[in-house]
Nucleic acid binder design. Structure first.
Length: 823
RNA sequence: GGGCCGGUGGCGGAAUUGGCAAACGCAUCAGACUUAAAAUCUGACGGUGGUAGCACCUUGUGGGUUCGAGUCCCACCCGGCCUACCA
């Protein structure tokens, strides 16, 4: 109020535009190879150009940007690129709805979102922008496909696959969610279809993907991936049918229960079913198979469904004891896992138990748990899981083997007899890559009646996506309906051939975008090796945890496959991963248009400025946790920035000189804050960065009132303060920095160093407890000895009152903190 | 059913990783400034009792370890996420 005349108002709209222009004009955020500096590749997951920048994008990108800026001030040459994951279904859906070409829709959205993103003031190097729908980008996506094909990592097969009837396309296993098995994009329950599709051999890497050596990834992501990959160990055992001697393998995690197998179960789709079924059972079996297949088509539903199945009429010989046991078929056995056939041990497996009880099959106990009465198969009401503490019984010569060594011993026994061998199974499936949609990178393969599937040669890439296509979904690939596009000649024999009319899963595009950023215009390969050698691997990667089992698995697979093909180096693409949580609406619910609880970032920027929005987003909660938005909360952050503005610019009310104690306290707080904020930036703990800055400005404002503003300590405090806030609130920091006549730009300054002497406390508050209860607080010199601390504590009046004349049994002294007197 | 994460004032959240619970902010209340309002500034603000010094209670519940537990261990309750006939 007093200084309105001379102090300009904080006008974020004006200063933010000004500096964004200046930074762009100066190329302040261009990052080029510089061998004299250590490099830091900071990456945040690229957005899909949905049309509008969402507050979630701000939430994801702001801390990523702040951390990148911090690293830059730490002396690193930082690369922080941005681009667009531009292929994908929403473009087609919007196209259908509004009758606008997917390409037009997508590129219009990109322009809009790029403009919006620039208002964030992030240090993106836009020269490195990559857009996955550009032909110069997907040329290399296609090139990678042909590389994978040539190296045996891409193959084509017919199989029952997940089909989304709404999106009219197949999906990868990872893109089918929830207990009702719905489409990840549109929530429609998926159905099964038998189709010929392209797959990548992700399962080749199942084992290696379980190792996270040398990378710093959150425990939760590693756990999600580990569970998804689903490693289980056991044995494969070969059985024969009794009559015709057909061989078939089963997988079991409990080979030590082999003697308890009282029947076998094949999946209805198992190839042996038609061969072994006896004439008497034929009608019943065929009816069941048909019903099971139809059911799969509708949906292989319901976990708590009643067991069903049919006897084939044929028996199997149990290789461990020569017994004949009946072979059934049942839909609780899946073709897609293991060998599609199991031995059933009802005494020790709940599913088998339910099946046995329903159909009156024998239940035979072969593992006797310790400390329990011998159990009888007839009397059991549920299966007794075979745990490690049991002992094998009713198992011929293996009887008496203790549980801890049973599996290993049986495996050895099986191997010696050539009956079976130890085996590891993974739940992970190969990655289904074909999509029956238009807006994607065409699969660069040609199908020739003579030569089979032939990859399009490198010099013919990219296989361009034609513009003149009827993209309305019919269940057929739109490219198939194009009058001419699919007809071509075979690259091998020159004969008439057809192109593959499917496009690739967009997760293929995003599996390597971090490589394209290195050199988005490079045309001799997917990336410039010079750039690769300098920048890779990604040092810090940030993004949502929802990608744990999709993008983050795919990109690791992709990198490992490329390594084995000699394209990349190292075992992992991203060294450090950090996940953000989710900003919820003010009502604590997930934001959605239908709920009406979305938060529009553009309006907030207009009202408060980008710096306030950035600061509030990282202040309101722990970043990896997320939480509800608050419109009144952001007012507090806005208030803080206005206070800082006034603190730096307004003429002091008290221009006298501060006393020594004020100066000492000011410097101590500044350097203590610097130490804790430095640690917070390093650890991605952003919310406490803001609260520490608020605390410090509260003290600085007080110091200023006490006459500190004409001192060197004050200048130092302001200098450090602006540098500490620069990564989070880059515009106001730059403006105030410039206003003080300091050299442009604050963002190229080095991070200040902590003065440990200044930060040291010379007095501490000694907490004195009696029997663990705080009874006194005494200010003492910081370097007080344990003995003196004890003496001081014991002589306090307040303590004496609580001692009631008794002699302490024990006194515990925690140096610099407290004394606990135990009576 | 299995796995994981979480539960701290009216609200969002801090807590040096076993050492003063509630930092910082929001909301609220009171006061200053103002003709008035906004903005700004000052103060109060976990609960109970007391004029007060102070005392007792308090981190989902119950137990345990420890001189000392929001933090470690055991059991349970609640909420969220993932997964699911995976043999």
């Amino acid at each position: 109020m007093r200084n309105r005349q001379e102090t300009p108002n904080y006008d974020p709209g004006a200063i933010e535009k000004k500096w964004q222009k200046q930074w762009e004009a100066d190329g302040l955020y261009h990052s080029d190879i510089d061998e004299s500096k250590p490099k830091h590749y900071a990456l945040t997951m690229l957005p899909y150009p949905s049309g509008d920048l969402h507050i979630g994008h701000w939430y994801a990108m702001t801390p990523s940007d702040a951390h990148a800026r911090f690293m830059r001030m730490q002396g690193y040459n930082v690369l922080f690129p941005m681009g667009f994951d531009a292929f994908g279904l929403p473009a087609e859906n919007a196209a259908i709805k509004n009758n606008i070409h997917p390409k037009v829709w997508t590129y219009k959205n990109i322009d809009r979102m790029r403009t919006q993103m620039k208002t964030m003031g992030a240090m993106f190097d836009w020269r490195r922008e990559a857009i996955s729908a550009d032909p110069e980008y997907y040329r290399w996506t296609q090139w990678f496909f042909t590389q994978l094909f040539r190296n045996g990592l891409a193959y084509r097969k017919e199989s029952p696959v997940d089909w989304c009837p709404n999106c009219n396309t197949t999906l990868a296993r990872e893109q089918v969610w929830g207990d009702d098995r719905h489409c990840e994009r549109c929530d429609t329950p998926v159905i099964k279809k038998n189709l010929v599709q392209w797959f990548f051999r992700t399962t080749n890497y199942a084992e290696e993907l379980l190792y996270y050596d040398g990378i710093d990834w959150p425990e939760t992501v590693r756990l999600l991936q580990t569970n998804w990959i689903g490693r289980s160990t056991g044995a494969n055992v070969t059985f024969k049918t009794a009559v015709e001697g057909h061989q078939f393998d089963i997988f079991t995690t409990r080979p030590d229960t082999l003697w308890g197998a009282t029947f076998m179960v094949l999946a209805p789709e198992h190839e042996l079913v038609s061969k072994i079924t006896t004439p008497a059972q034929k009608d019943e079996v065929e009816a069941y198979v048909e019903q099971a297949l139809r059911q799969t088509e509708i949906q292989r539903e319901a976990t708590d469904k009643e067991k069903s199945g049919v006897f084939t009429g044929e028996y199997a010989i149990n290789p461990v004891n020569g017994e004949q046991i009946p072979i059934w078929i049942a839909d609780y056995v899946l073709t897609t896992y293991g060998t599609g056939a199991i031995m059933a041990v009802p005494a020790h497996d709940q599913r088998d138990f339910e099946f046995a009880r329903k159909f009156g099959l024998e239940v035979r106990v072969v593992i006797q748990p310790s400390g329990v009465e011998p159990i009888s198969g007839d009397e059991m009401t549920e299966a007794i899981p075979a745990k490690g503490d049991g002992v094998m019984v009713n198992s011929g010569e293996m009887s008496g083997t203790p549980g801890e060594i049973a599996i290993q011993k049986v495996n050895q026994w099986l191997e010696e007899r050539g009956i079976g061998h130890a085996e590891t199974q993974y739940r992970l499936r190969d990655w289904l890559i074909s999509r029956q949609r238009y807006w994607g990178a065409p699969i660069p393969m040609v199908h020739c009646p003579k030569c089979g599937s032939v990859p399009v040669p490198d010099h013919q890439l990219p296989v361009l996506l034609p513009d003149d296509v009827e993209w309305k979904p019919t269940g057929e690939s739109p490219l198939k309906l194009h009058p001419t596009w699919r007809f071509t000649t075979c690259p091998t024999c020159g004969g008439e051939a057809e192109r593959d009319t499917d496009t690739m899963d967009t997760f293929m595009c995003s599996s390597w975008y971090h490589l394209r950023y290195l050199s988005p215009k490079y045309d001799k390969g997917p990336f410039d090796p010079k750039e690769y050698d300098y920048w890779m691997p990604v040092d810090t990667y940030t993004g949502g945890i929802e990608h744990a089992n999709m993008h983050l698995i795919y990109t690791r697979f992709f990198h490992k496959a490329c390594r084995d093909m000699g394209i990349t180096e190292g075992h992992e693409p991203m060294m450090q991963l950090r996940n953000q949580g989710m900003v919820l609406g003010e009502d604590g619910e997930k934001m959605s248009k239908s709920r009406g609880n979305t938060v529009p970032p553009d309006e907030l920027v207009q009202k408060y400025g980008a710096d306030t929005v950035r600061a509030y987003l990282i202040f309101f909660s722990r970043w990896n946790q997320g939480g509800p938005w608050s419109y009144s909360g952001i007012e507090g952050t806005s208030r803080w920035l206005r206070r800082v503005w006034a603190m730096v610019l307004e003429a002091p009310q008290n221009s006298g000189s501060a006393n020594e104690r004020t100066i000492r306290n000011l410097r101590r707080k500044v350097h203590q804050t610097l130490a804790s904020i430095t640690r917070d930036y390093e650890n991605f703990e952003f919310n406490t960065i803001i609260s520490s800055l608020m605390e410090l400005s509260n003290l600085m404002i007080q110091s200023k009132q006490d006459g500190a503003s004409a001192t060197r300590a004050w200048d130092e405090a302001v200098d450090i303060y602006l540098k500490m806030m620069a990564p989070v609130t880059p515009h106001i920091a730059e403006e105030l920095w410039a206003g003080l006549g300091k050299p442009y730009s604050i963002h190229t300054q080095y991070w200040p160093k902590v003065d440990n002497e200044a930060a040291a406390e010379d007095e501490i508050t000694l907490v004195v407890q009696v029997n663990g209860k705080v009874r006194d607080k005494i200010v003492v010199p910081a370097d007080i000895s344990d003995a003196d601390a004890e003496k001081t504590a014991l002589t306090s009046d307040a303590i004496a009152r609580h001692l009631e004349g008794k002699t302490p049994r024990k006194v515990i002294v925690i140096p610099g903190r407290l004394v606990n007197i135990v009576l």
